[in-house]
């Protein structure tokens, strides 16, 4: 089948890729664009390590044909990493040692960002619920939940300061 050209927004800039039909967003990000923060744990929607945001909503990029994000806004871990320093979620994951091997971390940070964007003050249960689709084999999840709580607190402090 012939390739088609797909255009979408990635981290605030427009990108254009040529793909065979049914090429996944994950494959385009990693293999064509070199955005390898988005991981490949299972390629069957089972582990969450490839989580990205599409128009702010968390999606598993391994199940998403890139044609489906044509004209949409895609956000990856690279997109939220500031030029200097770290995003509050990244800072919180680092401070809480919320990783060991690090392979699930990009997906964990992205799913947590989607949660905090919707709900700046989630309960423990809300956090656990949000993380159910993301598997970690190393940490046992407790430091990850603590990191999300800490990030929520840090972000609400920042927001408070900005409001003053």
């Amino acid at each position: 089948m012939a390739s088609t050209i797909v255009t979408f927004e990635l981290g605030g800039r427009e990108v254009e890729v040529m793909v065979k039909p049914m090429t996944t967003l994950q494959s385009v990000l990693r293999n064509q664009l070199g955005f390898t923060a988005t991981k490949e744990g299972c390629r069957q929607g089972g582990c969450g390590s490839c989580t990205v945001l599409v128009n702010g909503e968390p999606m598993m990029s391994c199940l998403l044909p890139v044609e489906d994000v044509a004209g949409q806004r895609v956000t990856t871990l690279e997109s939220i990493t500031p030029a200097e320093g770290l995003h509050p979620l990244q800072r919180a994951f680092l401070d809480a040692n919320a990783f060991q091997c690090g392979y699930c971390t990009p997906g964990m940070v992205m799913i947590s960002k989607a949660l905090l964007d919707h709900d700046p003050a989630p309960s423990d249960d809300d956090i656990r619920q949000a993380l159910t689709g993301n598997i970690c084999r190393c940490t046992g999840y407790r430091p990850i939940v603590r990191a999300v709580q800490a990030a929520a607190e840090a972000m609400s402090d920042d927001a408070g300061e900005q409001a003053r």
């Binding site: 990493t81 994951f93 940070v109």
Partner: peptide, 13 residues
């Protein structure tokens, strides 16, 4: 020592 790489996705697997 590898923490920054893990949280930014720059760690190379």
């Amino acid at each position: 020592s590898d923490g920054i790489g893990h949280v930014t996705g720059r760690t190379q697997y």
